[in-house]
């Protein structure tokens, strides 16, 4: 094989590897999102409009992340968290801009699903804390969707 062919072959192999890696990673976050949407499904019947946009990423076991979200007084919100790692235990909680727990008591955690409910007392920024409490995986993909009515 001449040098050009070798370079072409190596380049192609690298490209295939990158594409394969991208597909694997993307599929995991997409899977996490589909589980989050699955958790949201029953609430659609109750009049919640679930947003198309979402947050996502990956966390190690015992790690938390915070994201900030603008909420409006008068609306009612549910945040649904999902992961494709079935044996993971995850949670989601919501705090106001003073750092005070702002959620309703009917939030829930069921293995690789979790949800938090908030009826904002004021309009402004809130912090949504996502937690992978336990997971058999080194990194656990998560996705968070929300709905309002």
């Amino acid at each position: 094989m001449n040098a050009s062919a070798k370079i072409l072959l190596r380049g192609s192999s690298l490209l295939v590897l990158i594409v394969a890696l991208q597909s694997t990673v993307a599929a995991s976050v997409d899977d996490a999102q589909s589980f989050a949407l699955q958790a949201a499904e029953p609430y659609v019947k109750e009049g919640f409009q679930v947003r198309e946009d979402y947050w996502g990423g990956d966390l190690g076991s015992g790690e938390k992340k915070a994201v900030r979200q603008q909420l409006f007084k008068g609306n009612e919100y549910w945040f649904w968290l999902g992961t494709e790692v079935e044996r993971a235990k995850i949670s989601v909680h919501i705090y106001d801009s003073d750092g005070k727990l702002a959620e309703e008591p009917d939030g829930w955690e069921k293995g690789h699903f979790a949800a938090a409910h908030v009826i904002p007392k004021t309009t402004g920024s809130y912090f949504v804390i996502v937690n992978v409490e336990e997971s058999p995986e080194e990194r656990t993909h998560w996705a968070l969707v929300y709905g309002f009515r």
Binding site: G56, A66, V67, S91, G99, L101
Partner: peptide, 30 residues
């Protein structure tokens, strides 16, 4: 994947906290 990268960036910019157990803290230091 692009979205994943974007979201990972957000996540990286977010806060990594320690786990304090199953009990939900009533207050966090924002």
């Amino acid at each position: 994947f692009t979205k994943y990268l974007k979201l990972s960036t957000i996540a990286a910019a977010g806060l990594t906290l320690c786990v304090h157990g199953a009990e939900v803290p009533q207050r966090i230091d924002i």
